[in-house]
């Protein structure tokens, strides 16, 4: 177990170094001068020079990079010129919103996806299986933001069940919070439900063909017990490994969904930064989300070792 952990942590560290390097180098992709985004064409060379100094762009690339690493090691993601505040503070302020959105969506997706997958596998090739698979495939094929708009149209504009958008903090008004987060979370979960349902079904079908299921049958265990005690724990091993991917997809999806439902989360901050070419926000935001993704996957891997005792030995 210790060896597994060390190896995994070392791998994550290397990726982390690369991720931060990539976040930093997004600025190199810009055709022309990054300052052009902030200054109009009438700017004097002195103004451009001052901004370049402010952004640190006057330094050699190598020095810029060292400075970047020096700063992020202290948790400082830089200073947004447009927001005129620290990027770290701006992200942390909006983090709870995005996290609550993503985690509710994750819970919904896992609950619905795994249940649907089990129902499908247990009824392999019968109508519940076909219904689940068809719905799952539609879920995978619907653009999430479009679905969000449709839900707004139906439940907010036509029926008035939910607000059309905006966010109510949990501490202020728990019921209002639920109302403001429910539709976005549902929308965000739909694609993942399809994905998880298909994974669970495939994995469950494979497991149900294994010898130890026959052993369980030979023990005379109830069908339900066989599914839940022998089938599911084994089938969930591969499903768990994709939970990390799902978490990443949810973070990405949240960026779009926050936009649809006007939710002031990290995603909207970053999109705002991208659209206004606020580089510290882009760099810091990308790095931040990537680090969350890596952390989630690390946790998943460790969980994985607990679910599947075979991994621990290796």
């Amino acid at each position: 177990m210790a060896r597994f952990l060390t190896k995994r942590l070392a791998g994550a560290f290397v990726v982390l170094v690369l991720v931060s390097l990539m976040s930093f180098s997004i600025i190199w992709l810009v055709p022309g001068d990054p300052t052009a985004a902030f200054l109009d064409t009438s700017a004097t060379p002195e103004q451009v020079e001052r901004l370049r100094r402010e952004l640190g762009l006057d330094q050699p690339i190598f020095i810029q990079m060292l400075e970047w690493y020096g700063r992020i090691l202290q948790g400082d993601l830089g200073h947004s010129i447009l927001l005129n505040r620290s990027v770290t503070a701006a992200i942390l302020e909006r983090l709870p919103v995005t996290l609550s959105l993503a985690s509710i969506a994750l819970a919904l997706a896992l609950l619905a996806g795994i249940s649907a997958g089990i129902v499908a596998a247990v009824n392999h090739n019968r109508w519940p299986d076909q219904v689940v698979m068809t719905v799952a495939l539609f879920g995978l094929s619907v653009p999430d933001f479009w679905l969000g708009i449709m839900l707004i149209l139906l439940f907010a504009v036509k029926l008035g069940f939910f607000p059309t958008g905006g966010y109510v903090p949990l501490g202020e008004d728990p019921l209002g919070w639920l109302g403001s987060i429910f539709m976005p979370a549902m929308t965000l979960a739909v694609i993942q439900v399809g994905f998880i349902a298909r994974m669970t079904r495939a994995s469950m079908l494979e497991i149900l063909n294994q010898d130890f299921i026959r052993t369980a049958d030979a023990k005379g265990l109830k069908r339900m017990d066989i599914m839940l005690r022998h089938g599911l724990p084994n089938a969930l091993v591969p499903v768990l490994t994709v939970a990390g991917i799902v978490a990443g997809a949810l973070l990405g999806g949240a960026v779009i969904i926050e936009q649809v439902f006007s939710i002031p989360g990290v995603g909207r901050l970053i999109i705002g930064g991208i659209l206004s070419r606020d580089y510290p926000v882009i760099q810091g935001g990308l790095l931040f989300l990537a680090v969350i993704y890596l952390a989630v996957n690390l946790v998943v891997d460790i969980l994985y070792a607990f679910v599947d005792p075979r991994v621990r030995l290796e």
Binding site: L21, L29, P31, G248, A249, V255, I274, A290
Partner: peptide, 24 residues
Amino acid sequence: MRLMDALMAFPAILLAIAVAAVLG
């Protein structure tokens, strides 16, 4: 492959948005 892992750490859609926005 570590390089690929690093690229995969960014939410794909956000990466695409950032690159598309920066490139124009």
